[in-house]
Design a protein around this nucleic acid. Structure first.
Lengths: 339, 339
DNA sequence: AGCCATTATTATAACGTTTCAATTTAGTGA
DNA sequence: TCACTAAATTGAAACGTTATAATAATGGCT
């Protein structure tokens, strides 16, 4: 593999000139520039990122940690972020924490060794002292996505979770539902807490009571949501609609209704947060509250870039993005509606 | 950020000893070992990957290029590969080519600069001279996944595409179908060609004619598959079953049938290659031919590791993995069957 | 023509590791 | 106790860049 010295020799210039020709073309004369470029082409020279990183003190690498890349929300988010990063000359090291704190911390360690210039973190679960320490040890800008973490001073980009839940619940109410169950994430997670609050307020605003029996914590997991939905739907006094707080849990609920042979939306209405790429492909088409995933990724990367460039200072702020209700067919008027 | 010198100073040993303590613990005495470890802990020292890479000539980084990380097949594949790589001490730089050759080549270039130690490539589209040159310039082991590329001498891990299509088609025939359409990828891609061949042979083996009007090329894309299905289903002499050659196209077909108000499987049966995480969640549950994604990732990484370690030599070979038919409900006996 | 102010070019010192060869220390047998 | 071998420790070179400071070349003015 050709080095910068080979290029310099071939172009008959100094290595400094080659470096300049590549990084500050305006600083080198036209004839040498041409000679260097020709030599670079002929040798197929590609600068060694490690050497550059060592000398410059910055690697051109960003880290991104997500809980589950298999989740369409995260894979779309990564797609948006990688695109935005590439446009700015950064590569992204994607890490899958599998929703466990250990792997998240392990990844944090390797990212530190890689001397990443910035980190996009979708924190798994709840706060952890250890994690906070590892993040601080990174000594680089961090932007949180999807879930904010209070008190650490990081920028964050999150959905207006309250509004998302409020709109979903209101839509169900508008369809004529009175008993609306909510399958939520763990109460300790801020995102889940906000969504619960939005659900409650929508109910209250419509003059409906909040029935604790209709609120289940399924930890944002599909299997638990499946079980919760099964329990809910087997109950004598079952709900006419189920509102799920994320895409995985929506799938779990779908599975439960299919298994029970229930027809949606005739027997049970379903509405969830997080749009799915195939929401329009199934019957009934799924009514969902979509997150602006692309905008989320772009905003996060923008914030990160500003921090890295030093054009943004001070304590982090939380950017709140608005959800969009995608009205389709899975949430409709209950068939056997008691008027 | 602490360097190895800081550790050496604190532990009162030479930098060489610190390096050895970290990389070849057996080569350093117990008391110094302990001193070094204590110092490392106290300083929170993490070796600089760039410096190490520069000196050792290997980066500990693997590259992985996929066409669309949003596709569940690829995100599961990445998950498996990242896990296997981490177990061997490698990090993975994931690149999304968005199915375009330009971005794929751009990624190839940055991966080269990063001096990755190995590459997992899911090549987009057909062969390209330029790509072949870029790959060769990498001068590192490459393992192809999902699609083999003939004549370049790389190892590859692929599905037994012929068998997958054969089984899918046979299953449809077994259900009583006689007019089975196939929505396929571009004929120029080996994967698509093999699947077509499997479809044909299954038909022939059952004594059925191959009707060219029932075979459509939708380029492995959802939208094209949607359009193809629409055309197919509006025809007077329409098929009773549709076989799709990948997951995206299955979604497209689903959308088309939903739009036409057709009931699956009563009006139209559907069977496709690539399982989907939500195949059991929708009604009807989708009958699909699953790829052994996890095994694929592990095999690919294994091959790559062997090449990198130099324990595997010679020209590359293609490992063929077997599909698994997941019989569910979307492919059933045609209702109005002309006997 | 001669001087000064730019502008182009270059030599060289880092950056933080690993590794080789050299040195020191410890251990053995006579 | 001494030579000799093996094991432990270390000094210093090298990896391929970039950036700084120094030098060389250019051009504009009197």
């Amino acid at each position: 593999m050709a080095t910068i010295r080979d290029v310099a020799r071939l172009a008959n210039v100094s290595v400094a000139t080659v470096s300049n020709a590549l990084n500050n073309p305006e600083k080198v004369g036209p004839v040498l520039l041409a000679r260097v470029r020709a030599a670079v082409d002929k040798l197929g020279y590609a600068p060694d990122a490690a050497a550059r990183s060592l000398r410059k003190g910055s690697s051109g690498l960003l880290g991104m940690i997500v809980g589950d890349i298999t989740n369409p929300f995260f894979s779309e988010l990564f797609q948006a972020i990688e695109l935005a990063a590439a446009a700015r000359g950064f590569s992204v090291l994607l890490c899958n924490s599998n929703e466990t704190t250990e792997r998240e911390e392990a990844h944090l360690r390797t990212l530190r060794s890689q001397r990443i210039d910035g980190l996009i973190l979708a924190p798994t679960g709840t706060a952890s002292m250890n994690r906070a320490a590892l993040l601080a040890a990174l000594e680089i800008p961090v932007v949180l996505v999807d879930r904010a973490m209070e008190g650490l001073g990081y920028d964050a980009v999150v959905l207006n979770n309250h509004r998302a839940a409020y709109e979903a619940t209101s839509h169900a109410i508008g369809c004529g539902h009175r008993r609306i169950a909510m399958i939520n994430g763990p109460g300790a997670v801020r995102t889940a807490a906000d969504r619960l609050q939005g659900y409650r307020e929508a109910l209250l605003a419509a003059g409906l009571a909040v029935d604790p029996a209709l609120i289940r914590d399924a930890g944002f997991r599909e299997q638990s949501a499946y079980e919760a939905a099964l329990a809910l739907l087997r109950d004598d006094h079952k709900p006419t609609a189920i509102f799920t707080a994320n895409n995985l849990m929506t799938i779990g609920v779908l599975r439960a209704t299919a298994e029970l042979g229930l027809n949606c939306p005739d027997d049970i209405s379903i509405i969830g947060i997080d749009d799915l790429p195939w929401a329009e492909a199934v019957s009934p088409r799924l009514t969902m509250v979509a997150q602006p995933v692309r905008a989320m990724g772009e905003t996060a990367l923008d914030l990160l870039a500003q921090r890295m460039a030093g054009t943004r200072l001070g304590s982090g702020t939380t950017t709140v993005l608005e959800p969009r209700l995608m009205v389709r067919n899975s949430c409709a008027a209950p068939k056997a509606m008691a008027l």
